[in-house]
């Protein structure tokens, strides 16, 4: 099903960026690293498309473009519809002999707002219709581009401008929607989670998503120093600790069969390596209020929820 693609760090370092320098993401933006790394996984020509959001805005401030490949942006809610149209057009143009390239891959990029919330209808439809494309969610866990509003991907207890921690609520009251599981439930060929610290795992999964026939969904974790109120130099470290605490476990589901990826498997086999969620939370200002007597019990809730979801994942992976 997948080719044997072996690469070294230097191969990746040497490969030209399709998401070019001069983009205007904040200093330390891990979403920008995710964009660069996903695009290092291409096997040939691609057409990319983005939903409205930080990675679209920072890469297309007129007259500048950071895309060293054909790229289309239309609206916030419909990136998967864009991808569907591109893929369908390529098919017919190939059939009519109007384009020479044997294979042009289609990759869609969207944030959490553009995926969990407003974009889910277009995404669900595109997957149900079976279009051959890779959908990359870069999850910075809020509507960052418009000023840190909470989304369906914002975790419990995070303070955002529309779920502000104060005297009434402890940050977001609701829980993070398990979007990747929702995609697996579409019975699609390939779904995976990835975190930029584990760059090799991320690039390998992006390539698999590109290679697979039919739709693929890649849920990437993207620490945002602006919205998470975290040190810009710590974005990649946070993306590691999210995995080590099992806040964001790494796995893939090939034709619906779940399997843990190496960084999370290590923790499953040696549970003493699983770090407490505190270590993750304390690095981010959006959780600062949880370290006060008033809201401290929310940390226990987050730990319990994380453990519950981790156990559920282990069961799905056949490890219990």
């Amino acid at each position: 099903m997948f080719s044997e693609w072996k690469f070294t760090a230097k191969d990746i370092a040497e490969k030209a960026d399709l998401f070019m320098s001069g983009h205007r993401a904040c200093a330390g933006c891990a979403a920008a690293t995710v964009m660069r790394l996903v695009l290092k996984a291409v096997r040939g020509p691609i057409i990319a498309t983005s939903a409205t959001g930080c990675m679209e805005v920072v890469s297309s401030i007129y007259p500048y473009t950071s895309w060293a490949t054909p790229w289309i942006h239309t609206a916030f809610e419909n990136v998967a519809a864009n991808a569907s149209g591109i893929e369908a057009a390529l098919k017919i143009l190939k059939k009519k002999g109007r384009i020479k390239q044997q294979r042009i891959d289609v990759i869609a990029f969207a944030g959490d707002g553009g995926t969990y919330d407003i974009g889910i209808q277009a995404l669900s439809g595109a997957v149900e219709r079976g279009h051959d494309f890779l959908y990359v969610l870069y999850d910075n866990e809020a509507y960052m581009n418009t000023g840190i509003q909470r989304s369906g991907g914002t975790p419990h207890g995070a303070s955002t401008t529309t779920s502000p921690a104060g005297t009434v609520i402890p940050g977001k009251v609701q829980y993070k929607k398990p979007i990747a599981d929702i995609m697996v439930a579409h019975d699609m060929p390939y779904v995976a989670t990835a975190s930029p610290h584990y760059w090799r795992d991320l690039i390998t999964k992006a390539r698999k998503g590109i290679e697979v026939d039919g739709p693929a969904f890649l849920h990437t974790f993207a620490p945002c120093p602006r919205g998470w109120r975290s040190d810009p130099s710590k974005s990649i470290e946070i993306s590691r600790i999210a995995v080590e605490t099992c806040i964001f476990p790494l796995w893939e589901a090939i034709n619906g069969e779940y399997q843990l990826s190496a960084p999370s498997k290590v923790i499953a086999l040696r549970p003493e390596r699983k770090k407490p969620v505190r270590e993750y939370l304390k690095m981010q200002g959006r959780f600062r209020h949880l370290f006060t007597p008033k809201f401290e019990k929310i940390i226990d809730e987050i730990q319990q929820l994380t453990d519950k979801r981790w156990q559920r994942l282990l069961k799905k992976c056949g490890i219990v």
């Binding site: 320098s21 001069g22 983009h23 401030i61 007259p63 500048y64 473009t65 950071s66």
Partner: peptide, 11 residues
């Protein structure tokens, strides 16, 4: 169409 490469925009 954005036509100028952002590599001409120094950050």
């Amino acid at each position: 169409i954005c036509w100028k490469p952002s590599t001409e925009y120094l950050t």
